Amino acid sequence: MNPVIDVLAASEIDHLEGLWGQLLAHHSKKAPHLAELGALRSPAESWRLRREQYIEWLREPRTTVLVARDGDRLLGYAVVRVLDAPGSWQWGDQVGVLETLVVDDDARGTGVGQALVGAARERLAELKVQVMKISVIAGNEDAVRFYQREGAVDFVRTLVMPVSG
């Protein structure tokens, strides 16, 4: 498959809802252990909250939503931000963050994810960003292997735990 990668306008954000729902379902299957901390949000509620977050992020001038298309069909999307993050390593004072990467269930394994990650890397390189941070939900080892094939290495492990109880 040879998807066309475009930048999605903020006014078209609602086109992403179906793919976000697929990602939510995928995460619920890959990370059932997280249900111990609280029930999964409904797809509608989850999308409402993520949509608000996307709109807020798109107010930042260096946030981009990249979409992969095959004609009129939306195959996937990636949300990429740039954050100030001076740290212990000489990576510059800003890092890219791949906030979301979703590939339509029927398009997985066809190169769509690679195309979106490649476009995200190109976008960040244009902005003189040297490093992109990627978070993967625990249990999604397929995603870890995908990012490692793309050149990602382990950096930080994030844990969650209940505050009371």
Rank of each mutant, 00 (worst) to 15 (best):
A143Q: 03
G151T: 05
G87K: 07
V65L: 15
S88E: 05
R69G: 09
R108I: 12
S135Y: 12
A119C: 08
D70R: 13
T100E: 14
Q90A: 12
V136E: 01
L16F: 04
V153R: 07
N140D: 15
W57A: 12
A107C: 04
G109K: 11
R149N: 13
D104Y: 00
E126I: 05
H33M: 10
R81A: 06
P86I: 12
A9M: 08
Y147P: 06
G76V: 01
A10F: 02
E12P: 00
Q148V: 11
V95K: 07
R145C: 02
V112I: 14
G151P: 07
S88R: 08
T110N: 05
A44P: 05
Q148Y: 00
A44G: 12
A125F: 01
Q53F: 14
Q130I: 00
E126H: 08
K128V: 01
E45G: 06
P32M: 03
A9R: 12
G113Y: 04
A35M: 02
Y147F: 15
L16E: 04
A115L: 07
V160F: 14
D93E: 08
V153S: 15
S42K: 08
F155M: 03
R41Y: 04
A138F: 04
L74K: 11
A120I: 10
R48V: 01
T100W: 05
A10R: 15
A138G: 15
A35K: 13
T100L: 05
R69H: 12
K30D: 08
I134A: 01
E141V: 07
A143E: 03
